[in-house]
Simulated assay, not measured.
Amino acid sequence: MNSLRRTDASLLGLLAMLCAAAFIAPSWLMSLLAVALAKGLVALGLLLLLRAGLVPFGHALYYCLGGYVAGLGTPWLGIRDTLLLLALASLLSGGVAFAAGFLMRRYRGIFFAMLSMALSMILYGVLLKSQSLGSSDGFTVGRASFFAVQTAGVGAIRSVYLLTAVVTLLAAWGVSRYLKTAMGHVGPAIRENEVRVEYLGCSPSRVIHMEYTASGALAGGAGALVAILVGQVDPGMGFWMTSGEFVFIAILAGAGGIWGSLAAAFVLEGIHALAFEYAPQYWKFVLGATLLLLIVRFPSGLSSMLANRAGARS
């Protein structure tokens, strides 16, 4: 209980700092933080699967699906409110993940990773050939509105940033609570010995199916938030390199807990921004080399470093 209370207090403190930053930070910094928080939202979903020894290489499917749902909600369904678009994107992405979960739950290891990537590339190929959806160029997403109040300029960026911060930290709170439950402890047991988990009367396939569905819903919500923030969607959101970026964040974070996932997302986005700013021709090299050094230095992920510091303070 003490650890949960500390986590709750830390999340509230982080949320307070992020909300305060909305009124003093420039628009470019709010955009950077919002994208990092959205990627951290995807990483929280991947954390559930990573603890079970599964590395999905196709979560760009749900990220892209959420973005397109947010973009099409206004012209197709007449939905203009950002909160409703976010809810619709999460529900639809979670529903697709639930349907795909009946297939994904049967596979493990490299087969799980490759099958998830194949599903993502199917969506990418369909969107790439869809002339009505802008083909490779995508299309523009409408401006954000909250409770029929239209926002624009810095106000639009600030509102989406604050929404992203609240949604991500609420998801982090939910994931942290889930990991402390009996069901949350089944994931590492599945990774170590799936047969023994079955002997204990728990179905590993059902647990994986449930966690895969939840991770898909989180990724869909993240895609919707980024689409509304950027104001543009395109098939690149569903490309395998996008999935690879999410997997990289999950590996850099480790399977220790929620703080590693959030920290890894901020680290990756920060290094990406700095490398692109100061070495635009070599930013990929700088980004890859820096992240490689981090993984070599922290082979168990950033969560292990955070856990060691917390243990030292105790």
Score class of each variant (00 low, 15 high):
R5W: 11
R6M: 11
A9T: 12
S10F: 11
S10R: 07
S10Q: 13
L12C: 09
G13A: 15
M17T: 12
L18W: 11
A20R: 05
A20M: 14
A25R: 06
A25T: 07
W28E: 11
L29M: 13
S31D: 05
L32K: 09
G40K: 07
L47K: 09
A52T: 08
G58S: 02
A60W: 00
C64H: 02
C64N: 03
T74Q: 14
P75D: 07
W76K: 08
L77A: 15
L77K: 07
I79A: 07
D81I: 03
L83I: 14
L84V: 06
A87C: 08
L92C: 04
G94V: 03
G101M: 01
F102A: 06
L103W: 10
F112R: 03
M121H: 09
Y124D: 05
G125Y: 08
V126L: 15
V126T: 11
L127H: 03
G134I: 02
D137A: 02
G138S: 07
V141T: 02
A144L: 11
A144F: 10
S145K: 01
F146R: 05
F147H: 01
A152G: 11
R158E: 14
S159G: 10
L162K: 00
A165W: 03
V166S: 06
L170N: 09
A171W: 05
S176K: 10
R177Q: 08
M183L: 15
M183D: 15
H185C: 12
H185Y: 13
V186D: 07
N193A: 02
N193K: 07
V195Y: 12
L200C: 07
L200W: 01
C202P: 00
C202L: 15
P204Y: 07
S205K: 13
M210K: 05
Y212M: 05
V226Y: 04
G231L: 10
G231P: 10
G231N: 12
G231Y: 12
V233H: 12
V233M: 05
D234Q: 14
G238L: 05
G244W: 03
V247Q: 05
I249C: 01
I249N: 01
A250K: 01
I251M: 08
A265L: 06
I271R: 06
A275N: 01
A275R: 01
F276E: 11
P280R: 06
T290V: 02
I295S: 06
G301T: 05
G301W: 04
L302Y: 01
S303P: 09
S303C: 09
N308M: 15
A310I: 12
A310P: 06
S314C: 14
